[in-house]
C-alpha cells in the first residue's frame, strides 16, 4: 500500500516535470526555471533538492532538444562554445555561493533571488515582443575576430537568414551572470543566455533560443558535478524529474520550430510572472518578513498580480501594433 503511494508520488513528480520540460524547451529556458518553483511550491521539496534535481534534469532537456536543433543547423555551436567560457566559470562561482548560503542557513534569500531573477528576466522580453529578426547593425571588431557569423533556414519565413553577432565582450559578461545564476539557483538560466545573445550580441531569436538550449547543458554539467559532491541531488527526485523533463522537452522541441516567436514570449511571460511572485513571497514568508499570511493566500495574490500585469502588458503591446497598422494604412 505504501509502495503504491510512493509510486504515485513518483508519477506526480514525473507529471509536473513533463509540463516544466515542455515550457522550458519552448522558451529556451531549459525546464529548471519552471521546475524549481513547481517542486518547492507545490510538492514541498526542500530548495536544495529541488535545485539539484532541476539542474541535472536541465541537462536532459538541453541535450534532448539540442539534438533536434543542431541537426536542423539552427543552433550556432561555435558561438555557443565561445560563450561557454563565461558560463562555466559563472556556474562554478554560483554553485559555490549556494553551498555557502546553505551552510549559513540563508536559504530564504535564494527564494527571493529566484523570484526576482524570474521577474527581471521578463523585462527584456516585454520590450522586444514581436521582433523576429534583430535590427540591422554594422559588424564590429569582435565579429571578425571571433567569427560571429552564420546562417539558418527559417521554416516559417521560408528563406535562409544570414546573420552576424556583435559586442562579443558584452555577451561574455552577460553569460558570466547567466552561469552564476544557473549554479546558484539550479536552473539553466536560459532567459539570461537569451538576453546575452539577443540583446548584447544582436543575434536572431531562433539562433538565440536554440544555441542557448545547447549551452544550458554544458553550464548545468559544471554545476551538477559540484552539487553531486555536496549532496544536493536526491536520486529518487532526480530520476523522476530527469525522465519527466525529457518527455516534456521532446514535445516542446517538436512544437518550437513551428510556432512564431511572439507566441513563445507571451507563454513564458504569463507563467514566469506568477511563479516569480510566489517565490518571492515564499522567501519572505520563511523569515516572517512582510509576508505573514498563509501559502494559499500567497498563491492567490500571485495569481491575481500576474493576471493583471499580463493583461495590461498584452493590451499595451496590441495597442502599439494597432497604431502601427493604422500608420501603414494611411
Amino acid at each position: 500500500m505504501t509502495l503504491l503511494l510512493i509510486a504515485l508520488k513518483f508519477l506526480t513528480i514525473v507529471f509536473g516535470s513533463i509540463i516544466a520540460g515542455f515550457i522550458g524547451s519552448l522558451t529556451g529556458l531549459g525546464g529548471g526555471t519552471v521546475l524549481v518553483p513547481v517542486l518547492t511550491l507545490f510538492y514541498g521539496i526542500p530548495f536544495i533538492f529541488a535545485a539539484g534535481a532541476s539542474l541535472i534534469s536541465t541537462i536532459a532537456t538541453s541535450a534532448g532538444s539540442a539534438s533536434a536543433y543542431t541537426k536542423k543547423k539552427i543552433a550556432n555551436i561555435k558561438i555557443g562554445i565561445g560563450l561557454e567560457i563565461a558560463t562555466t566559470t559563472g556556474a562554478i562561482v554560483g554553485s559555490l555561493t549556494l553551498v555557502f548560503i546553505d551552510k549559513h542557513a540563508l536559504i530564504w534569500s535564494v527564494y527571493v533571488i529566484f523570484g526576482l531573477v524570474l521577474l527581471f528576466s521578463l523585462i527584456p522580453t516585454i520590450k522586444k515582443i514581436g521582433k523576429e529578426v534583430p535590427p540591422e547593425t554594422k559588424p564590429d571588431w569582435s565579429t571578425k575576430l571571433f567569427q560571429l557569423t552564420g546562417s539558418y533556414y527559417d521554416e516559417r519565413l521560408r528563406k535562409t537568414i544570414k546573420y552576424h553577432g556583435i559586442r562579443w565582450w558584452l555577451g561574455e559578461i552577460v553569460m558570466f551572470f547567466a552561469g552564476f545564476v544557473s549554479g546558484l539557483l539550479g536552473i539553466g538560466s536560459g532567459a539570461l543566455k537569451v538576453l546575452g545573445m539577443d540583446w548584447a550580441m544582436n543575434l536572431p531569436m531562433k539562433v538565440t533560443t536554440t544555441s542557448s538550449n545547447f549551452m544550458i547543458g554544458i553550464t548545468a554539467a559544471t554545476g551538477s558535478s559540484i552539487y553531486w559532491y555536496e549532496g544536493y541531488i536526491n536520486l529518487f527526485i532526480a530520476a523522476a524529474t530527469a525522465i519527466g523533463v525529457l518527455i516534456g522537452a521532446f514535445f516542446g522541441a517538436k512544437v518550437l520550430v513551428r510556432i512564431s516567436n511572439e507566441n513563445i514570449r507571451w507563454i513564458f511571460f504569463a507563467i514566469l510572472s506568477f511563479l516569480g511572485f510566489d517565490m518571492v513571497f515564499k522567501g519572505l514568508h520563511l523569515i516572517n518578513f512582510l509576508i505573514t499570511f498563509s501559502l494559499m493566500i500567497q498563491f492567490f495574490i500571485s495569481v491575481i498580480i500576474s493576471i493583471v500585469l499580463i493583461s495590461l502588458l498584452y493590451y499595451n503591446s496590441k495597442r502599439k501594433e494597432w497604431r502601427k497598422g493604422n500608420e501603414k494604412s494611411r
Partner: peptide
C-alpha cells in the same frame, strides 16, 4: 540511477 545521472552529466561534455 547514479550511472544514468553521470552519463547525463558527461553528455554535453562530449559535445
Amino acid at each position: 540511477i547514479t550511472v544514468g545521472l553521470w552519463v547525463l552529466i558527461f553528455t554535453p561534455i562530449t559535445v
